[in-house]
């Protein structure tokens, strides 16, 4: 076990992947000598050189488009998009090309491209630096979408995503980059060196986890809101309520089985994400809970998320984003049924 921040865990995970497979290379803006604006690639340019840690021209469509070409020749590009709000110049390449090549080629072309996106808010930034665009991509078949909430998951999941033959959007909760925890480096190394390592990795990446057990309410979160959900569970516990926290980890595929299992026990579900509630991950999940656990529910499934406004000035982000009060309010509402 080694103590790591989440940023450090992703850094070490990428380093391990690069050591394991010479075809893994990194692409992005300012990821070389600078080590990325969040320093997630710190030291890698020095150790692996500019051919494997590429400071690209300032053009996201170019980055993703050329990564696709490289992946066609067996490379495994890991892209850093500098901030969530700057992925959109690449939206076309991601949704019309990256997502569909395997299907269009009838399985002949794999595109093992990982697009890392520091996302979500709570860093007091100017506009376009705090967004949560995951649902825009989740609506596109052909992409896998994951988001770690802890250093351990960050360390494991980045390596699993790189090893998997499919394209990934890897959403990193940037406000959690500096959270520190002990990380076990051995388990994922063993998994990936196994005979069906990539398949096992993909399967594991597709599953959520119960982060805390409880019996009154199922609180579902991922990425940046997992920590909030855990805090809510603590506060609720002091009020005599037992909250089960599910960390989805994966948004596409969505591990509804884990949520449904929990919902059948608690009968109450609250979903929390930073992205706008409308048409979000929570909407999809709520629909699945209705379809699969309707007769076990004691209350309507509630969602707490960003409002239907553009991300406001950072002075308002605490109120715009789900916070302790808003999630507790939702817990209250499902409990009064």
């Amino acid at each position: 076990m080694t103590a790591m921040t989440m940023a450090g865990a992703i850094n070490r995970g990428m380093r391990a992947a690069m050591e394991r497979d010479p075809k893994v290379l990194l692409m992005g803006e300012d990821i070389g000598q600078l080590g990325g604006v969040f320093r997630v690639t710190d030291g890698l340019w020095k150790d692996f050189g500019p051919d494997r840690v590429m400071d690209t021209p300032l053009a996201e469509s170019g980055i993703v488009g050329t990564a696709i070409g490289m992946a066609m020749r067996g490379y495994r590009p890991v892209i850093e998009i500098q901030f969530d709000g700057f992925i959109f110049p690449a939206f076309d390449q991601i949704t019309t090309q990256l997502a569909k090549m395997h299907y269009r080629s009838r399985g002949l072309i794999n595109l093992p491209v990982v697009i890392r996106v520091p996302f979500a808010g709570h860093i007091g930034a100017v506009e376009h630096h705090s967004e949560s665009p995951e649902a825009l991509f989740a609506h596109t078949p052909g992409l896998r979408i994951v988001s770690p909430a802890t250093p351990q998951d960050a360390y494991d999941m980045i390596q699993q995503a790189i090893a998997s033959p499919d394209p990934y959007l890897f959403f990193e909760p940037k406000a959690r980059y500096w959270d520190k925890a002990e990380v076990d480096e051995a388990r994922v190394a063993t998994q990936l060196s196994g005979e069906h390592g990539a398949s096992a990795a993909t399967a594991e990446l597709s599953r959520g986890r119960v982060a805390r057990e409880g019996k009154d309410v199922t609180l579902v979160a991922y990425g940046p809101t997992v920590r909030l959900a855990m805090q809510v569970a603590d506060v609720a516990a002091s009020e005599g309520r037992s909250i089960e926290v599910v960390d989805l980890r994966s948004i596409s595929p969505l591990d509804s089985a884990t949520v449904v299992r929990s919902a059948k026990r608690t009968g109450r579900v609250v979903i929390v994400h930073e992205a706008p509630t409308a048409f979000g991950t929570g909407a999809e999940l709520a629909a699945r809970v209705m379809e699969q656990a309707f007769f076990h529910l004691h209350a309507p499934v509630l969602r707490v998320g960003g409002f239907s406004t553009p991300y406001p000035g950072s002075k308002f982000e605490h109120d715009y984003l789900p916070n302790l009060d808003r999630v507790l309010d939702a817990v209250d509402r499902v409990m009064t049924h």
């Binding site: 803006e29 300012d30 070389g32 000598q33 600078l34 400071d55 690209t56 021209p57 300032l58």
Partner: peptide
């Protein structure tokens, strides 16, 4: 410069 990248990267 574009942040850290010199114009020769563009």
């Amino acid at each position: 410069f574009a942040i850290s990248e010199p114009t020769t990267r563009q």
